[in-house]
Simulated scan of single mutants.
Amino acid sequence: MNKVPLTVRGAEQLRAELERLKRIERPRIIEAISEARAHGDLKENAEYHAAREQQSFVEGRIQELESKLAHAEVIDVTKLAANGKVVFGATVNVLETETNEEHTFLIVGDDEADIKQGRISISSPIARALIGKQQDDIVVVAAPGGSREFEILAIRYV
């Protein structure tokens, strides 16, 4: 399997979630199953079935997180020799020329993307268009709603 790029912050968030699931959620669910078992007949025991379902979900998420972290290539943008270019992990301020709106994008891995927070996936059309460009470059992005043009105002590596 190929390595998947992940920012340092993204890797920390995945590790924190994994730790919480293993140290807090897993023991809590095991306790809930144990308590529900003590109530007797398991066929009609809603608490038992709900706890087992929750356990299945948590164990699946633990496996998913462990796999993501095992296949992650954690990239620290502060240590890259980016030479003023847009790279994975960079924060880019752009001006959308048609609307005169400024946007700030942080280019992250697919699992970290959240457009509401300005975190865009490295595989998104906007990120692909920005990668390798420099401040003052004009970038045209073929978006689903038509072409959008951006001017790169600033690039930060934080």
Rank of each mutant, 00 (worst) to 15 (best):
E149S: 15
A143K: 07
Q55W: 07
S121R: 05
A72Y: 12
S147I: 09
D137R: 10
I131M: 11
Q54I: 00
G145F: 04
E53A: 15
A142H: 07
E151R: 15
R9G: 01
A127G: 08
A81M: 01
E35G: 04
I115Q: 06
E101L: 15
N45D: 14
L69N: 08
V8T: 00
N45T: 08
I138N: 04
F105W: 11
A36H: 02
E35A: 13
S121T: 02
H49K: 14
I138C: 08
A154D: 15
V74P: 00
R20N: 10
P125F: 08
E53R: 14
S67F: 15
D111N: 05
G60D: 06
A70H: 09
A16Q: 14
V140A: 10
T99Y: 05
L65E: 04
R26I: 07
G109A: 03
G10I: 10
V158L: 13
F88W: 04
N83P: 03
L18A: 05
L6M: 12
E59M: 09
I155N: 09
E44Y: 12
G60R: 12
H71D: 08
E112W: 04
A154W: 12
Q55P: 00
I33C: 09
A90N: 06
D41K: 11
A38S: 14
M1S: 09
I29P: 02
E25Q: 09
T78W: 00
F57A: 15
I155D: 00
L80A: 13
E102K: 15
A129H: 07
V158C: 11
D76H: 01
N2I: 07
D111C: 03
R52Q: 09
